[in-house]
Nucleic acid binder design. Sequence first.
RNA 1: GCCCCUGUAGCCCAACCGGCAGAGGCACGCGACUCAAACUCGCGCCAGUGUGGGUUCGACUCCCACCGGGGGCACCA
Length: 825
Amino acid sequence: MAVDEGDGASPEGYDPHAVQERWLPVWERLDLNRAGRRPGAEKRYVLDMFPYPSGDLHMGHAEAWAIADVVARFWMRQGYDVLHPTGWDSFGLPAENAAIKRGEHPAAWTYANIDVQAESFKRYGISFDWSTRLHTSDPEYYRWTQWLFLRFLERGLAYRKNSAVNWCPVDQTVLANEQVVAGKCERCGAEVTKRELTQWYFKITEYADRLLDDMQKLEGNWPDRVLLMQKNWIGRSTGAHVDFLVNDRKVTVFTTRPDTLYGATFFVVAADAPLADELCAPERRAAFEAYRAETRKLSDIDRQSTERPKTGVFLGVTATNPLNGEELSVFAADYVLADYGTGAIMAVPAHDQRDLDFARAFDLPVRVVVDTGEEDPAVTGVATSGDGALVNSGPLDGLRKAEAIEKAIEVLEERGTGSRAVNYRLRDWLLSRQRFWGTPIPVVHCPEHGEVAVPDDQLPVRLPEDMKGAELQPKGQSPLASNDAWVNTTCPVCGGPAKRDTDTMDTFVDSSWYYLRYCSPGYEDGPFDVDKVREWMPVDQYVGGVEHAILHLLYSRFFTKVLHDMGMLDFVEPFTSLMNQGQVINQGKAMSKSLGNGVDLGSQLSQYGVDAVRLTIIGAGPPEDDIDWATVSPGGTLRWLNRVLRLTDDVMALTGDGRDATVDKAVAKTVDEVTRLVESHRLNVAIARFHELVNAMRKAVDGEAKPAGSLRDGLTSLAVMLGCYAPYTAEEIWSRLGHDVDAGDSVHDSSWPTADPALLVDDAVICVVQVAGKVRDKLEVSPSIGEDELRARALASPRVVELLDGKEPRTVIVRAPKLVNVVPG
RNA sequence: GCCCCUGUAGCCCAACCGGCAGAGGCACGCGACUCAAACUCGCGCCAGUGUGGGUUCGACUCCCACCGGGGGCACCA
């Protein structure tokens, strides 16, 4: 990276640090960003995904918050009453790990980092309403996280069950499915293993359909890829449940292809499902158990590899096909998943590749029942899954795939051996964590009464404040379990001795509702003031990284729907519009310690100042694109800011009120375009418009006319618009233009400029005249020129006459006033 | 393997509904200022839009295929 040490402070005119120090305290005194400052005005809510306090702010924060700040300030200038809150997602593992290492309580590290970040945000000039500030690790906050958990519990949406769960051996805790990425822990990258544990879950699957269907409301305002990722994650499949009989016992399978029932030639049960154990014939038990032991040794990553040859074991029983009465051999195999569908499948090797692979490995029959016109799968080894006419299928023969699916379901339902069914890939949200620094689960286990909710008036269940260092060392169960004084309590029902639940909640529970709390910070009668939330929510613009496409965003959508059903919210989607900012990278790669290509935000700010960094970040490209810091030039941006201030001084040195139409038009055009560009989130292009305007004004200052009136007005408009991007420099310009900022006349309390429509109309436009699609002439015409007149003028053009060479044109395309295309005969 | 996004000067990026490929910047070159340099100011510079087809009067833009880059899912029945 080219960092010229000399760039930092330019000798002439502009010291960004002095400007920052001058205006920051004035702004704090003027309290310009408080929500509710513009009573009666339409409300807007701008939100960044709140930060985790893992140290000081870095380049990634700088980008996300710069983007949201432009939007927030733009709306404020446009006269909206804007809520732009801030807080910290302050529970979580890094604090706990730091506490273990340092022999402290996690709160020490957490709140120290929060203070550092808060100062950095202030210096970075973000237009927060600081009165909204919250920390999810404050008892005043997690009290309500617990309260919400209890409401979920009452509604049957929180429940406890024993099952095989994802376990991270490094972080020593269970993980939600969403936190397992390609078989590895989303946080630390360790390979995830399985454990049998009794854990708390939220029943998000009950909302699968609504989470899917309501995405329709978000289309166009959320990035398509995020919606697609959620759709894939939820993974709705439609088909049928089909009941097979194994020794008089009903065993149901889920299939998306009931039309292929006549092509089922064997039957498979997930080897690790209890069902396999139950169905296994005594004489096959030894073989089955040996196979199951092998399966359990495999990691999820190996197990889920499609490259691996199919394995399995015959269970010594048969399943009866309900449609044709055929007896199918039942196998246990690890390619069938215990926790998807019913954990058992009917295998149709001709039309399913996995079944075909298994059939070929075990020499099982392959029967084609859909004639797709392709070669016999038994020969090619390639299953055919396309459309075609049904064959070898009794009553289904001759039907097309879609018709056959309907018919098969009809027949199954008539006979009572199956039914239409929908299945999801989405699993319930496992929320228990075996760690300390999180919201305690407000449940007491009583030997008499079982799981008992802690009554609302006893909330919050506080974390002990005296545990620190080695006491927090994870040992496969929550550190809270070793704190007898904390664990031992009394049952809220009978008053007898009982024990607290020692797990804490996934931190994604905390972040699933913080945007609601912001509407009424400090509210003591509930998690939020329902009326305030009605005023501000939903969030009009949410900004954050795409890494939360599924996790945080799916969970928040779920919470919102549940709270809606509880009658606390009158909307069903929390975030109307979502923007995913890209990453800041360096030299083509993500910044990392091992690569040594990290760029420190603090040193960039010291070197170039806040505004140059903010402008550079936003000007580098579209917000959603990655920014390669090696390709941008904060030094160049600082030079430009210097140029603008020099222009201001030169303009203020002029006398008189002279006007110039060229300058007035340039200003109007810039205002008009920048307004539309910011509205459509093309924030980078707006910066190019600022450059153009400054270039135009520079020319006017250096020219003969020196229209002081036009230039002062132009700078005034520029200062307001630029203020959204570069708040300090804009205030400095504003001040030099003669505004008394100290007395409250701040550019950050001014109004967005308006463009006089009369100035946006050009007197004349250039019309392109094409012959056969190639530009041959240009005409200066009135913007309101009629089609006929323009056609006549174009055809009269000497160049056109020459090229037509006396022939009649075949067609003449006229797009007044910009283009005429003459197509020769 | 399946799905999605993306490819424009040396580099980063513009181009609204298909209508003159270039707004802005970086880098570079030349000139002015200077004793000189830096700073500053002025001027200049380079591509025909990954490749091959198609649709169209007209394609960076729409369609198809392929290549390169990025991402998501991955034995989901």
